[in-house]
């Protein structure tokens, strides 16, 4: 949303702070291996790291590639590793960092080019866990379901996921097991499980309680630490483990399926 960062003359010299941006470069057509490139960027006080990258793109090196759009931490495009931690670059204020900032693509994911990673894994997993409403009762034609604020509150925080993949970058299990469904997808599955309108928990369990599902999570907990929307996927996954265990016992005891 920012107008493309201005040339230095327009920036207002009094507010400038020059930082060194050390940026991960990977250009498969030029070099099969990644490298590092450093840029000196004059930054305004209120800039975020994304503004600094836009400055590089516009004024220093047009070949630097990265994704961004909304510049207000809701489209989920611009996640990167900044000084080793996954963060949305539009929310990473330069003032909170030292003069030397290292920018890398999100960890644990395949890099297509520079700071651009493959995101298909998340999209495939969102489908695999059936992250959509499976109605408990058929909807009346022109009448919304009733849902009290308390019922809404059960799942609301989980519905805040912006699919930015920071949690995938923070989770070692995502790197260790390529098939692991991952924090965001599991949290969104649980979002629907907890929705009073939904009756699909058991159906989702076919994926979520599979070998690549919740039991792959060893509760490192970093996914929740880095989540920009406070979704707490780690907590959601533990809740699903509990629910899945109870379901297993209930069926062993012949109490039928819980859903």
């Amino acid at each position: 949303m920012n107008p493309s960062p201005m040339p230095v003359s327009a920036v207002g010299a009094n507010a400038l702070r020059t930082i060194t941006l050390e940026v991960f470069r990977f250009r498969p057509e030029q070099d099969p291996l990644p490298s590092w490139q450093t840029y000196q960027v004059p930054c305004r006080e209120e800039w975020v790291v994304l503004d600094a990258l836009n400055y590089i793109k516009d004024h220093l090196d047009g070949s630097l590639s990265y994704r961004w759009s909304c510049h207000m931490a809701v489209c989920g495009s611009c996640g990167m590793m900044i000084n080793g931690k996954p963060i949305l670059s539009c929310k990473a204020f330069v003032r909170d960092f030292p003069d030397h900032i290292r920018v890398e693509p999100l960890g644990n994911l395949t890099v297509i080019r520079d700071l651009v990673v493959k995101q298909e894994r998340l999209l495939a997993n969102l489908s695999a866990v059936k992250s959509w409403l499976i109605p408990k009762t058929p909807a009346a034609a022109d009448e919304p379901y009733r849902q009290t604020p308390v019922q809404l509150d059960q799942y609301r925080h989980l519905s805040m996921c912006i699919n930015c993949l920071l949690c995938y970058a923070a989770c070692p299990q995502v790197a260790l097991n390529e098939g692991y469904l991952g924090p965001a997808a599991l949290a969104l599955a649980h979002r629907y499980n907890l929705d009073s309108r939904d009756g699909g928990t058991f159906e989702r369990m076919q994926a979520t309680a599979s070998a690549d599902g919740i039991w792959e999570c060893s509760f490192v907990g970093e996914c929740s630490e880095v989540c920009p929307k406070h979704v707490d996927p780690a907590g959601a996954i533990q809740q699903m483990k509990l629910a899945s265990s109870l379901d297993w016992f209930a069926r062993r005891l012949g109490l039928g399926e819980r859903s």
Binding site: G84, N108, T110, V111, P172, E222
Partner: peptide, 28 residues
């Protein structure tokens, strides 16, 4: 489709952050 770069999880990844270290101690 041209080549891509797939980062490897370093063997000592769990030493990288305090959060990972606390987790490892809990596992141990």
């Amino acid at each position: 489709s041209s080549s891509v770069y797939t980062p490897k999880l370093p063997r000592w990844w769990w030493l990288h952050h305090a959060g990972y270290r606390r987790y490892m101690v809990r596992e141990l």
